[in-house]
Design a protein around this nucleic acid. Structure first.
Length: 250
DNA sequence: CGCTGTTTAGCTTTCA
DNA sequence: TGAAAGCTAAACAGCG
């Protein structure tokens, strides 16, 4: 018997957790990140059940976003004013769900404290980069002696940066195979950041979803581009297509 | 002021 | 049956 499609639940509550629904919404977005209001919209558009009692489930959903490390809050870029941040999926949270199912997760995705600190540090660095690159050119705004120029914050760099791509998501293979090191890991060596090396307008979610955790890679455009290309060729598109297919089958 | 985000608490459900 | 996962409620702070 064919399984019901997502749209066939009608007023019945869909068998997805809030985490699954949120992950679906984020993955269906072109940029793989959404503001809270768009996550609400995705869910209410597809699941009529959630068009009522909005206060209740939206509160639960916000709780899940804050509580679970699998969701990353990404500050808005200055050219995208609005309320609230963007939310993305942590790249290491790909294989949370049992047998590729969005019904129940294998285990809670929890970052180690050290990893969490690294991530926060990197997001702070990105916010700083955005501030620098989205600052209007000096000749575009009348000089105002009351404004303090933005001083670039020091971006921590390492001599070696490892970009860890997630295992191919939602396959039995990914669930049963070891996390043994492989050539899936790309080692790049960033150079010291400078104004000419930094890439403007690269969004945090793009970087995070490309599996590159260390934003020092910003300092080496060639490595960043190479990393991105390899990711998309071997994993990125396939992984997102898998999730998209799964979320449509259920 | 309403929305967003965080946190705590208590309960139910599911799984090993 | 205990632990983990999930759901709900609520209080509160910050921000646009």
């Amino acid at each position: 018997m064919p399984r019901p499609s997502r749209e066939s639940y009608g007023d019945q509550k869909p068998p997805y957790s809030y985490i699954s629904l949120t992950a679906m919404a984020i993955w269906n977005s072109p940029e793989k990140m959404l503001p809270l209001s768009e996550i609400y919209k995705f869910i209410t558009d597809r699941f009529p059940y959630y068009r009522k009692n909005t206060q209740r489930w939206q509160n639960s959903l916000r709780h899940n976003l804050s509580f679970n490390d699998c969701f990353i809050k990404i500050p808005r870029q200055p050219d995208r004013p609005g309320k609230g941040a963007y939310w993305a999926l942590h790249p290491a949270a790909f294989d949370m769900f049992v047998n590729g199912s969005l019904l129940r997760r294998r285990k809670r995705f929890k970052l180690l404290k050290s990893d969490k600190e690294i991530l926060e540090n990197e997001l702070a660095a990105l916010t700083n980069i955005n501030r620098i690159f989205f600052q209007p050119p000096p000749d575009a705004v009348p000089s105002n002696p009351n404004l303090t120029p933005v001083e670039p914050m020091e971006v921590k760099t390492t001599t070696e940066t490892t970009c860890i791509r997630p295992k191919r998501a939602f396959t039995i293979e990914s669930l049963i195979s070891d996390d043994k090191p492989s050539n899936n890991n790309l080692t790049i060596t960033p150079v010291q950041p400078s104004a000419t090396h930094l890439i403007p307008h690269v969004h945090p979610a793009w970087l995070l979803n490309s599996g590159c955790y260390d934003l020092a890679a910003f300092a080496n455009p060639a490595a960043l581009i190479q990393s991105s290309q390899m990711y998309h060729e071997s994993y990125g598109l396939a992984a997102s297509e898998d999730l998209f297919r799964v979320s449509h089958q259920l």
